[in-house]
Nucleic acid binder design. Structure first.
Ligand SMILES: [Zn+2]
Ligand SMILES: [Zn+2]
Ligand SMILES: [Zn+2]
Ligand SMILES: [Zn+2]
Lengths: 168, 168
DNA sequence: CTAATAGCGTTATCATATAACATCAAGGAG
DNA sequence: CTCCTTGATGTTATATGATAACGCTATTAG
């Protein structure tokens, strides 16, 4: 189950992945400094690994990656870091996969939601607030007070759908 | 973790619960007969327990309920029944709780989605297709081919929100 | 510096889910 | 009816996901 830190799945999506990781860590530093949160070495390392994988990553895979170079960390080490990062809004949990992914989105006006490709495994975070609006109005109608939402849409991303139709 | 089969949480929602269970089982019989599926004794029993609980129920709680009267079933017994029921569309999995709940909804035109109350624990399945429409259009725009969706909105149901504001 | 607190290491254990293989029951072909 | 195939179930073991509890250490407020 443990996976290499490099991300094969991104082959169809060219971008400067090193910068991607660096930027995410820089943002995290800023956010934590502003909010008086402590982004300790372990927490930072876990966040870095999550971004390096660049797709939903399981807690025990992160643990294996941490321990890859002679480490010997135990599960609570990772779960505590994950709890912190979730709390700080720096990552999200993909409930349908028991996996975690980095967040690069401003959530002041819309809640997390994902398109997840079954082929390449990537989870794209959607920013539109249309879905939130509809949910809000449906909730209003039902007298339901929304607290938190889990929206995970599985399917085929554009790149993988294109590849598939080309092959057939 | 194991819970009694009767459902305290439904106290604020008066309805003929026995009929509720009976109807669900009758519908299941019909669906399975029409589709050539075998609703065996165990599968039927698991479905009955899920409806009896009437809120998202965990696999091991179901197992405990099955074994309550001198039984000795093992986990695969329950998980296999759950797999069958999921496949047949007779239940849904609430991913954010690792729990299962009965379905009484026609899904020809809209996918499963839930409002889940943190207070009473009930999960109400929403039927509106507005949310599906918005997701479909967002997906279209992104070139994403939707296969399956997980939509779970947590919060306070009308009854529990009312009770809370009354108390304060 | 000191005390209080937050973070972390470590061990054990709980909770969720599946693999693998043996056995059994139902239904069709001959 | 008998044999055979298939799908369902029983059983044991194990994989995978997550947390409790406790003591030590590092950080920081005063
Ligand atoms: Zn996000
Ligand atoms: Zn893809
Ligand atoms: Zn349903
Ligand atoms: Zn409620």
């Amino acid at each position: 189950m443990a996976q290499p830190a490099t991300n094969v799945a991104l082959s169809h999506c060219a971008h400067d992945h090193e910068a991607c990781i660096t930027d995410a860590l820089a943002r995290a530093d800023t956010v934590c400094r502003q909010q008086g949160l402590r982004l300790t070495a372990i927490r930072r390392r876990v966040l870095e690994l999550i971004w390096a994988n660049h797709q939903p990553t399981k807690a025990y895979d992160l643990l294996a990656q941490i321990n890859a170079k002679r480490g010997n960390a135990a599960p609570p080490t990772v779960y505590r870091a994950l709890d912190f990062l979730l709390e700080a809004g720096l990552i999200h949990k993909i409930e349908s996969q028991n996996a975690f992914i980095g967040c690069a989105v401003d959530h002041e006006r819309n809640q997390p939601k994902f398109f997840i490709c079954r082929e390449c495994g990537r989870a794209a975070e959607i920013q539109s607030s249309q879905i939130d609006d509809v949910i809000a109005s449906e909730a209003q109608e039902a007298g339901f007070v929304v607290d938190h939402q889990t929206i995970e849409v599985d399917g085929l991303c554009a790149a993988c759908a294109g590849a598939e139709s080309t092959n057939s």
